[in-house]
Amino acid sequence: MVYTIISLLIIGAILLIDKRKLKKYKNSKDLWVYFGILGLGFVLLLIHSSGRTLPTPLYWISAVLKPIISIF
């Protein structure tokens, strides 16, 4: 719960800090990229703060690479 509040605070702080820049790029496609990445981050942040463990991206890397390495 505490972490969820902190997560929301973080997102709020980010938007607040970027306010001026966001106004400057209003109606530009740059904002799509911005909110795309931010949205992804937000979703991950919420999942993380709700107590679920996110899988580490390294898991897939090692799953793919381990058989290859064992050849050598």
Partner: peptide, 26 residues
Amino acid sequence: FNVQDYKLLTLPIGLLLYIVSLVIFP
């Protein structure tokens, strides 16, 4: 992504960095 100002992307990317860095090593 042809974004005009890279500084715009700093914070969202920072957010991603923050989360992934927390979960990267169990």
